[in-house]
Structure formats: C-alpha cells, structure tokens
C-alpha cells in the first residue's frame, strides 16, 4: 500500500520535473545557452494562468492557454532582449560570450522575479485545475489532476520527440545541436533555427509552468529554487541530453518521494542534492552527457 503510494506519487512528480527541466536542456543542447531565467519563465506562465483562470468569465482552460502563451512571449523576449544582443555583441570576446549570456539571463531572471513579486505579491497561489476529483488506483486515492499532469508531461515529451526526429525543422534543430557550422554551410539560416528552438522552449516551459502551478502552487519566491532544481536535474542527466534529463528527473523525483515518506518530509531535498555532488565528483558529464 505504502509502496504503491510512493510509486504513484513519485511518478507524477518525476514527470513534472522532467517536463520542467526539458526546456532548459533543449535550449542548451541547440544553442549552448544556459538560461538561468528558466524558473522565471515557468512562474510567469503559472502566474498568468492563475490570474486569467480565476477570472469568472475566462475559466480554467482559457487560463491555461494564456499561461502557455505567456511562456512563449517571455521566451522570445528573453532571446531577443537578453541572449541575442550578447551573442552578437562585438565588444565581448568570443570565448567569454557563454559567461555573459549566463550572467545576463541570471539578472533577467532576478528582474522578472522582482517584477512578478511587485505585481502579484509573493504570497503563493494555485493555478485553477483543469480537472478536479480523485480516482482510486488499487486503494490509493489519487487526485485526477495528478494523473493529468503525468499524461500531459509524457504527451509533451512524445510530441517533442516526434518533432525533432520526424520533421525537417526538427531535424535542423538536432543538426544545430551537433554541428552548427556544418548546418550553416548547408545554407540553413542559424538564426531561424534558434528562433524555432526558443519558440518550442516557450511552449514547453509554459505547459510545465501551468502544470507545476496547479500541483505545487506558484509564487515569485519559488523562482530561484525552480531554476536550481531544473539545473540540478539537467546536470545529473548530462547537459543537453533529453533522455538523460528524463532519467535524472525520475531519479531525483523518486529519491525525494522515498525520503519524504520513509525518513522525513522536511529532509526531502537533501539526498538528491548529495547525489548531485557525488555525480559532479565521479561522473561530471552526468548520466548521458556527451562531454
């Protein structure tokens, strides 16, 4: 009974972690950008979804859609206002650009955090759920929303896999992650590939933000922790590896859930962080890292 409870609870939270970290690893894989404003994009989507969703006239579905849209807009703004100008700046030496992008997105994330705190206060809110009620799975009372979250997460992962592996545009994304110079030589405009990558990133982060906000609640104060969790999962899985990220999300999700149930809920995050430190010592490239 307890085992089944841990399996179900851990599955949903891990799926959510995977989705939350997916965009982060995608944008790194394709364009080499470590987007430290990631948590801020997630929370912006969730906040907008909450704000629209609690409006009587709009409803939960319109709320969720606006949240995803907000994710896409925030992603494009991040790219256009912060990332691209730094990448194209002649004043910054080639070798230092990644560091400048890292700093730029970090500061942008802090700005978004303060802005969201100012508009919505730091008091947590919960995004209106698309489905309510509970389902009995072999004696375990499971909220329907938790099942929806797991399904939506895996659906998004599946669609992303299809887009990357089965469509020409997706194949260009994959190529850009492996050999951007080769892609340029083939006559492909790299700028457009990046734009597509940020668009997909925005959709994924938007969905993740809305689902996270409906399950765990949301507040601008959660932004640093969300960026941190996504970063840890991606480092554990191997930077840029989508499969590695999903595996790492499940490792972290289940370790946390096991700790919460069997040791103490207040120690939930500790063992996974210890594991991360060990990985950095003994396998710095992560589970499925390429370098």
């Amino acid at each position: 009974m307890l085992i089944l409870q841990i399996l179900i609870d851990g599955f949903a939270i891990s799926a959510l972690y995977a989705l939350g970290a997916l965009g982060f690893t995608l944008i790194f894989g394709v364009s080499g950008v470590l987007n430290l404003a990631h948590g801020a994009v997630l929370v912006t989507s969730a906040m907008v979804a909450w704000y629209v969703g609690t409006n009587e006239a709009a409803g939960a579905l319109a709320g969720a859609a606006s949240g995803v849209l907000a994710g896409v807009i925030t992603a494009f703004v991040t790219y256009a206002v912060v990332v691209r100008p730094i990448q194209r700046s002649k004043a910054i030496p080639e070798g230092e650009r990644e560091l400048f992008v890292l700093t730029g997105t970090l500061l942008w994330g802090v700005m978004l955090q303060i802005g969201l705190g100012y508009i919505f206060t730091t008091t947590p809110v919960t995004v209106h759920q698309l489905v309510s009620g509970t389902v009995d799975i072999m004696g375990v009372r499971t909220p329907t929303n938790e099942i929806l979250i797991a399904v939506m997460s895996w659906l998004t992962l599946g669609v992303l896999w299809l887009v990357v592996n089965r469509t020409p545009a997706g194949k260009r994304l994959l190529a850009a992650s492996i050999n951007p110079r080769g892609l340029t030589l083939m006559g492909v405009e790299l700028g457009q590939v990046y734009l597509l990558a940020w668009g997909i990133y925005g959709i994924i982060a938007g969905i993740a933000g809305v689902l996270l906000g409906s399950f765990l609640g949301t507040s601008s104060a959660y932004i640093p922790a969300l960026t941190g969790t996504a970063f840890s999962i991606v480092v554990l899985g191997g930077l840029g590896s989508v499969t590695g990220t999903v595996m790492a999300a499940y490792v972290v999700g289940y370790i946390e859930t096991l700790t919460a149930y069997l040791v103490s809920p207040s120690l939930r995050a500790v063992p996974a962080l210890l594991l991360l430190v060990l990985v950095l010592y003994f396998r710095p490239q992560g589970i499925l890292g390429r370098r």
């Binding site: 409870q5 609870d9 939270i13 609640g217 922790a225 859930t257 919460a260 149930y261 809920p265 939930r268």
Partner: peptide, 11 residues
C-alpha cells in the same frame, strides 16, 4: 515540516 515543502501528500 520544512516551510519550503512543495508536496504535502506524504504528510
């Protein structure tokens, strides 16, 4: 529980 607990199911 720790004030930054996100999932209260186990509790």
């Amino acid at each position: 529980f720790s004030p930054d607990t996100a999932d209260f199911t186990p509790i």
